[in-house]
Amino acid sequence: MSTARRLLILGIAVLLLAGLGTGFVLHAASRAADRNKPRAGGPAVAAGTVSLTRTGQVAFVNAAHGPYRGRVTTVPAGAPGGTRTASTLDCARFYAAAGTGVCLRSGLGVLARTGKAVITDAALHTRRTFPLAGVPSRARVSPSGRLAAWTVFVGGESYGAAFFSTRTSILDTRTWHLLPNLEDFAITLAGQPYHAVDTNIWGVTFASDDDTFYATLATAGKTHLVKGSITRRTLTDTGVQNVECPSLSPDGTRVAFKKRVLAGASLWHEYVLDLRTLRQTPLAEHRSVDDQATWLDNDTLAYALPTQGDTTSTDLWTVPADGTGTPHLLLPGASSPAPL
């Protein structure tokens, strides 16, 4: 084959690849534009000032289609159907307490920068950022606002995957001391020191003393509710299994969690555990909930479910914490609730 013919073929190949690349970019841009286009009948959202110290509000990540999709947003707790106030802060996961916010941002692709954990003040101004080791999954702040925790996937894409790996970190926002991986804590399981290469820890929820927390520990195909101590660097088995994504009630007496109801399947139902009696109460939500529920108060839990007919969005639902009642739609097009 002559040199001229080789150059011709090479030129055609380059043009074809360029065309394919342009096509992919335009397709992605079109999908992004579609996601950012307001939908008829969707919630009203307006740009404004968001403060984490303004009481009587619920903060959340706005998942409604439109220009404020992905923004940290607030709405009055007593009027959730009212106009939402959207900030300029974009997050994949968010939580806040006592004027401290933690915002988890996804990376921009394989070759782009990694994701970040952004610690904010009450006005959502950035105080400090920390690189994430993977895909954002869970975020929490202690009741005092001093401690922040986050979980990321460093392998696998969901808790329903056959193989996945997580990393959970805790940060002291006063000293900026970071505990990068809770798997480094001393683990006690069934009364004995425990160590295994398949250990995963996720879903931190803090008590009010800025030392005690609860989390899920997974190993050998089972999940355990563990009680942690930051000062002692310990994780201790509570004796309760099949607990994922725990959430401690404001009064510190109960833990809401998702319980796998079918072995080997991504099906979870919401339960509440009484920490004194270890009695488990199934809640009235019978759909599968893959979320770390949030206590809006001592009687009500909120959680995200996929929007019916829209795989790119979620809605926030509530249910009574005592097993009575029925699920109620709180906020369409929303995730990551945090009562202020």
Rank of each mutant, 00 (worst) to 15 (best):
W268A: 10
D209K: 12
T188K: 05
A196R: 00
K222M: 06
A338N: 01
H328P: 03
L17Y: 13
P250F: 00
T120N: 06
L262T: 13
D299F: 09
L273I: 08
D172K: 03
I9N: 03
R127K: 12
V135G: 03
V110G: 06
D198H: 03
L179N: 10
D299I: 02
R138T: 13
P282Q: 10
V272W: 05
V272T: 04
G155R: 11
L235R: 02
L52W: 01
R138L: 14
I119A: 07
S266K: 14
W317F: 14
R232W: 11
D211E: 10
F257P: 00
G107N: 08
A302S: 10
L225A: 05
A97H: 03
V255R: 00
G156H: 05
L296W: 02
G191W: 09
T205K: 01
T324R: 07
G228E: 04
A96V: 01
G48K: 08
V102H: 03
R69H: 11
C245W: 10
R128C: 08
L15T: 13
S87V: 01
H286D: 14
M1Y: 05
T120R: 04
T324W: 00
R69C: 05
T126N: 06
R146D: 04
K259L: 03
D198F: 02
G145F: 01
T253K: 15
G66C: 11
I170K: 00
G21D: 12
T49A: 15
A46K: 13
Q292A: 09
A302V: 08
V45I: 15
T168H: 07
G11K: 07
A263P: 09
G160T: 12
L182Y: 05
T73K: 04
T223I: 07
G21V: 10
A59F: 00
L225T: 01
H27R: 15
R54D: 11
V25T: 13
G221C: 01
G145K: 01
K258Q: 15
S137R: 05
S2M: 01
C245F: 12
A64N: 06
N200Q: 15
F163L: 12
V319K: 00
L301T: 09
T168V: 08
V197S: 12
R69T: 02
P193A: 04
A265F: 14
T300C: 06
N298D: 15
T100M: 04
V255L: 13
A304C: 04
T281N: 07
T126V: 11
A122L: 04
A122W: 02
M1Q: 10
D184M: 12
R279A: 15
E183A: 13
S30M: 13
V197L: 04
T53M: 07
L15R: 13
L331K: 05
S169P: 07
L89I: 02
T55K: 15
I12W: 08
A47W: 01
P339N: 05
F206I: 02
P76M: 09
S229T: 14
W176C: 02
V72R: 02
T85A: 04
A86Y: 00
A32V: 09
T199Q: 06
S165I: 00
L108F: 14
A161D: 15
V141S: 02
L8T: 12
T307E: 14
T281Y: 09
T120W: 07
A32K: 15
R167W: 00
L331P: 03
P38Q: 10
G115K: 01
S336W: 00
T3Y: 06
A97S: 10
T83I: 04
V197M: 03
G81K: 04
